[in-house]
Design a protein around this nucleic acid. Structure first.
Length: 468
DNA sequence: ATGTCC
C-alpha cells in the first residue's frame, strides 16, 4: 500500500499549516480501519465541511483544528477588492462622516451600509450610519450610549395646560434628574433590574448597583424630557385626530451602558492590532467567540435598562400630574439587531438611526425649538429599513458653545413659545440642521403621522441660565 | 454619551 504523504493530505483539501500535522497524525488509525482510499475520501469530506464533522470518529481533531483556524483567519483584517455597497441619503454629508461610512464598508464582514440624512462625524461609524455585517458585532457601530432611545406618551391632559405651564413645569422639576452622576433620591425599581444577565460577567455584576441608583434618570448633552403639543391630523395610534399634550424623553443606558461600551470597544481594539489606524475604532467582536456573544447579551440588557429608565421617568411625571397615558411610541436608535438570514447570522447596527421596517413606529425629534415627528416606517430595503434619528448637528458642541449665548437664542424660543428649564448652550436650536429638510430627504423611508412641538423642555443644567 | 483614564 502506497504510504500517505503530505501531498495526498493537501489534495484532500487540508491546507498547509497546523491542520496538516493533525491530519497526518490521525491517518494511521483511519487507514487501519477504513483502508487507504476510503480514509482519504473521508478526510476530504471532513476538510470540505469541518463544521459538520466536529465529532468524526477518525478526523474530529482535523475538523476542530480547521474550524479554529478559520475563525482565527476571519479575525484578521484583509483588505477586500471592493467595498460593500452604500446607499447614501445624506446629500450634504460632511467629508468626515462619509469617510467613516466608507471605511466601515471595507471591513471583511460588511455586507452593506446606509447613511441617514442627519449624518455627522462620530467615532468609528458616523452618527446616522447603518451597517450590516455577517458574524461580527462592532461596539463603536452601536455607540457609546448603548440603547439610547426615544419614548413618547400621549396624555389625557388638555392642551391649554401647556399655556400657563406651571403644573407641567413642576412635574419636570420635581420628577426628573439630569446629569452625569444623577440618581434618584429614592431608588426606583423595575423588572429590568432583576434580569439574570446582570450576573453574566464580573463587569455587569459590578455595574448593577450603579445602574439601580441611576434608574429613572436622564444623562447630559442631548438628553431631554419635555412636554409639547402633539398634532395628529388623522386618526392613528389608536387615537382620534386632534391636538394632544405629550411627554417626550430622550435618554440611554447611563453610566452602566457607557462602561460596557468602553470595555468591549477597548477589547475589540486589542483583538485587532492589525487594523489600519483609520479602521481601529471599527474593531469588531466575532459572534462565535465569547467576547461577541457577551457584548450582544449585555447590549440587549442595556436595551432593557434604557427602556426601564424611560418607563420610570414617564411613570413619575405622569403620576405627579395624575394623568392617564392614552398611547405611546418608543424606539432605540443606538443598537444592533441580529437576524438569521439564509443560515447566516446577520447584524444590523444602527448608530443614531431609527428602525423603520414597514409599519414600525418611531419618534424623530428636531430640537428644543423645532418640531419632532412620529413616523411609521416604509421598510425601504436600500436604507436597511432605517431613517434619521433627529435633525443632526449642524456644528460641533465646541463650535456651538463658542458661537452662541442664550441672549442670542431667547428671541427664537419666545417666538416658538418654548420654555427651557435648563440646557447647555451647545444644544441650542441653531446648532442643529433644519429638521424639515431632513424629513424631506427621507420621504421614501418613513411616513409622518404626527407632529410634536416642544413647549416645556428640561435638559442637563450646564450652568448658564436659558431664561433671564 | 461617560463619576469624561481602573
Amino acid at each position: 500500500m502506497k504510504k500517505i504523504r503530505g501531498g495526498d493530505v493537501r489534495a484532500a483539501g487540508v491546507p498547509d499549516g497546523p491542520a496538516m500535522g493533525v491530519a497526518l497524525s490521525c491517518i494511521p488509525r483511519a487507514v487501519k480501519a477504513l483502508g487507504r482510499d476510503a480514509a482519504l475520501e473521508r478526510l476530504a469530506d471532513v476538510a470540505a465541511a469541518p463544521d459538520a464533522h466536529g465529532d468524526d470518529e477518525y478526523f474530529a481533531p482535523v475538523a476542530q483544528r480547521l474550524v479554529a483556524d478559520a475563525r482565527e483567519a476571519a479575525r484578521r483584517f484583509v483588505e477586500r477588492e471592493a467595498p460593500a455597497p452604500l446607499a447614501n441619503y445624506c446629500e450634504d454629508a460632511e467629508a468626515g462622516a462619509l469617510d467613516q461610512m466608507r471605511n466601515s464598508l471595507r471591513l471583511p464582514s460588511a455586507l452593506r451600509g446606509a447613511l441617514m440624512p442627519d449624518a455627522h462625524r462620530g467615532y468609528g461609524l458616523p452618527i446616522g450610519g447603518v451597517l450590516e455585517t455577517e458574524g461580527t458585532v462592532i461596539p463603536y457601530a452601536v455607540g457609546v450610549d448603548i440603547a439610547c432611545r426615544m419614548k413618547l406618551s400621549v396624555l389625557d391632559v388638555e392642551p391649554e395646560a401647556l399655556d400657563s405651564g406651571a403644573a407641567l413645569e413642576q412635574a419636570l422639576l420635581t420628577q426628573t434628574q439630569f446629569g452625569t452622576g444623577a440618581k434618584l433620591r429614592k431608588r426606583a425599581d423595575h423588572d429590568a433590574m432583576h434580569d439574570e444577565r446582570w450576573r453574566l460577567t464580573p463587569l455587569a455584576t459590578r455595574l448593577r448597583d450603579k445602574a439601580a441608583d441611576q434608574l429613572g434618570t436622564s444623562g447630559s448633552g442631548n438628553h431631554f424630557v419635555e412636554f409639547g403639543l402633539l398634532t395628529l391630523p388623522e386618526a392613528d395610534l389608536g387615537l382620534p385626530a386632534g391636538r394632544y399634550v405629550a411627554l417626550l424623553s430622550h435618554s440611554g443606558s447611563r453610566g452602566a451602558g457607557a462602561q460596557i461600551a468602553s470595555h468591549y470597544s477597548k477589547l475589540a481594539r486589542e483583538l485587532h492590532p492589525e487594523l489600519p489606524k483609520e479602521l481601529s475604532y471599527l474593531s469588531w467582536l466575532d459572534l462565535d467567540h465569547d467576547s461577541g456573544r457577551e457584548y450582544l447579551q449585555l447590549m440587549r440588557l442595556m436595551g432593557e435598562y434604557a427602556s426601564a429608565c424611560h418607563a420610570v421617568i414617564h411613570e413619575r411625571v405622569t403620576g405627579h400630574l395624575k394623568a392617564e397615558v392614552l398611547a405611546g411610541v418608543e424606539n432605540h436608535h443606538n443598537f444592533a439587531w441580529t437576524a438569521e438570514r439564509d443560515g447566516r447570522e446577520v447584524v444590523v447596527h444602527r448608530k443614531g438611526a431609527t428602525p423603520a421596517a414597514a409599519g414600525e413606529l418611531g419618534v424623530i425629534p428636531g430640537s428644543m425649538a423645532a418640531p419632532g415627528f412620529v413616523v411609521r416606517g416604509k421598510g425601504a430595503p436600500d436604507s436597511i429599513e432605517s431613517a434619521s434619528h433627529g435633525a443632526g448637528r449642524r456644528m460641533s458642541r465646541t463650535a456651538a458653545t463658542q458661537q452662541f449665548n442664550w441672549q442670542m437664542v431667547r428671541p427664537l424660543l419666545r417666538e416658538r413659545g418654548v420654555k427651557v428649564l435648563s440646557a447647555g448652550i451647545d444644544e441650542n436650536p441653531f446648532a442643529y440642521k433644519d429638521i424639515e429638510a431632513v424629513m424631506a430627504a427621507q420621504t421614501d423611508l418613513v411616513d409622518v403621522i404626527a407632529r410634536f412641538d416642544p413647549r416645556i423642555v428640561r435638559m442637563a443644567d450646564a450652568g448658564e441660565r436659558p431664561e433671564d
